[in-house]
């Protein structure tokens, strides 16, 4: 399977299969964090090709989770983008912080 896929289970829960080529573990976890107060989320496996996430309801209304899974997928896109940006910029971020807190060395050198 090479695309994302949603399965409706008999017990009312929803299985979401994700293509891990599209979504990294970090992006999935960051997204999950934003939904755990709305429904139960079970990240069952994260394997070579797919990840399986099971959503089940916290309250009565089952249609809620259908909607939540859709929102989850939307949020996942922005979260993956954040992971990508972070990957591209994390070295520079580190350099900025170390430069910011070590600024006056060269003054001392020139005073010597």
């Amino acid at each position: 399977m090479d695309s994302n896929n949603i399965e409706y289970m008999n017990d009312g829960s929803i299985n979401l299969n994700l293509d891990v080529k599209l979504y990294s573990r970090d992006a999935i976890l960051n997204t999950t964090y934003r939904f755990t107060h709305k429904c139960y989320i079970n990240l069952q496996k994260y394997e070579e090709k797919t990840a399986l996430i099971v959503f089940s309801q916290k309250n009565e209304n089952n249609r809620d989770i259908e909607l939540l899974v859709k929102e989850f997928l939307n949020e996942l896109i922005d979260q993956q983008l954040r992971v990508d940006i972070n990957n591209e910029t994390k070295d520079i971020r580190k350099m900025i912080i170390s430069e910011a807190f070590a600024p006056l060395e060269n003054i001392n050198e020139s005073e010597k």
Binding site: M95, E99, A100
Partner: peptide, 10 residues
């Protein structure tokens, strides 16, 4: 950019 951002951050 690193220098400018470092100064701003500081």
């Amino acid at each position: 950019p690193i220098q400018l951002l470092a100064t701003q951050y500081r």
